[in-house]
Each structure stands twice: as C-alpha cells, then as structure tokens.
Design a protein around this nucleic acid. Structure first.
Lengths: 138, 138
DNA sequence: CTGTATCCACGGTGATACTG
DNA sequence: CAGTATCACCGTGGATACAG
C-alpha cells in the first residue's frame, strides 16, 4: 500500500492523532475501558459458551437437552460453562425440586441485549475474517 | 409451563420457537455463525491483545514503545501476541532494515472496522457488566 | 435426571537469558 | 533495538466414574 518503506514522518512522534477511538478521558492501555472489554471477552470466552448461548437463543433448555444438542460437550464442561455464564449474568438457572429433578437454563435480558452486538461481530467476521491465519480448529 | 416434567414427547421435540435470533437458515449450535464468532473471540482473546489494540488506537507504535506503554508485558508475550494479531489480520507489521533496526506496528483497516463494535461491546459492559462474579483480576 | 469428583494432557503465560 | 530460546507453572478442558 502507500506505506513508505522508510522515512519516518517523524519528528513530532508525540503528535498522536488522539483518534477519539475511546470515549473516556483517562483511557490508557490499562484503562477502565480495556478492563471492561476484558470482562466481556472473558464472559464469552470458553470453549462452549458461544455454542450454549446459540442454543439458548431458541428458547430455554434443560441440562439434558443441552447435552443432546451439544454431543461433544461433556457434563463436566457443560456444568462448568453454565456456571460461569450464570456467574457473569448471561444465563439464568431455574431449578425445580421435583422428582425427577428439573433445571431450566435461559438467556437473561443482559444476554439478549448482547445478541445484537454479537451479530455485528459476526458481520465484521464475514467482512474481514479470513479462515487463514487462525487456529480455531478443535 | 406446558412443558411436561417428564416423558419427553419425542415426536414434537423439534417445536422450537425459532426466535429469529440468528439470520442464517442453517444456524445450529455448531453453525457457521458460531464458528465465525469463535474466530473473532479467538482474535481478541489473549491476555494482552486488547491492551495492545488500545495502544495502537493512538497511532502506530514501535516494539519498544509498546514495551514501555505496557510494562507488565514481557518481550516474549508482546512478540507472541503481536504475531497472533498480525496473523488474524488485526495488526500490520512494518520492518525496516536499518541500524538500529526499527519495526512499527499499526492497526489494519479490519481492526479499525472492529473498533466501533468493540465500543458497543463496551457500552454493553457498562450497562450490564457487574464487577461481581467475574475473575479478571490479574 | 442433574450434576460433581478425580485424574490427566495440553497450551497459554511468565521468568530468565541469549542473539542479530 | 527487536526480538528468540528455553524452562516451568497453572488454568482450561477432556475422560471416566460416581452421587443426590
């Protein structure tokens, strides 16, 4: 591209554009913004969380239903990921003290509010995401 | 609800509301959508990638500048994360065969296109992200 | 049916030291 | 200045078995 192979624009190296990419005044590399983003990243980072959310987008599901819908997920992981999703407020857990026991998981309002953003992320991935250079193969 | 506590009605088990949360016809839990989302998640998942991106939002930076801006990141990790970011097309690497050697890293257009989405993610985090229940403390 | 307990492999991350 | 090499730790996730 137009990237010069050499030649520093130089002198005023401190003349940062301050591109207004962040909206808070104090946003440094370790600012609150980045922190918050890491929280979100963490919330959906996990080998099966997106799959679980995707399932739950069709409506509430029980533990066994999720197991059947996601055959590759062990009970161990399903339980763990579900607990983490609940801890981050993305999934609600409704247990019924019956025989046999029944538990239903569903997306919270926060999760539903996140869905449109996820779809934008998806749109971005379709525009810019090349399968090359990424190792997402399990 | 009308969902019986036991005895799955095997026949009508496919009567999902189909909440129209996804936009592709074939989106199952392991659909292309979820796959693409995992690619994005992977692209920004890494202990320092968001911090690096945040730094680069102020303009191109050299390796040493990043080191100074992110004192907690070892050269090892900085190099690794930078390589991964470059591999996923979020960061460009411009090397100059000079003495002393100089390398500049910058956000690609794809990364800039991702920024607004990141900001929405951020807005979501502010609305729904509680500091409790999350373990992002390093 | 709904999970938990235990063991174990792997990879991401950090510390330190070294090279072009 | 800009990395790489090597070692070690630890959390994530998988397999299997067990419990309320």
């Amino acid at each position: 591209m137009e990237k010069q192979t050499n030649g520093r624009p130089a002198g005023a190296s401190d003349a940062r554009p301050r591109a207004a990419a962040d909206d808070c005044a104090d946003c440094g590399p370790q600012g609150a913004d980045t922190l918050a983003l890491r929280v979100v990243a963490r919330a959906i980072t996990g080998k099966w969380k997106l799959e679980i959310i995707s399932c739950l987008m069709d409506g509430p599901m029980r533990f066994g239903e999720l197991r059947r819908a996601l055959p590759d997920v062990t009970p161990h992981m399903l339980s763990a990921q579900l607990r983490e999703l609940a801890a981050s407020g993305l999934v609600s857990r409704a247990a019924f003290a019956e025989i046999p026991p029944r538990v239903e998981y569903a997306l919270t309002e926060a999760a539903w509010a996140l869905v449109p953003v996820l779809r934008e992320l998806l749109a971005w991935a379709r525009r810019h995401g090349r399968p090359d250079g990424l190792g997402v193969a399990d």
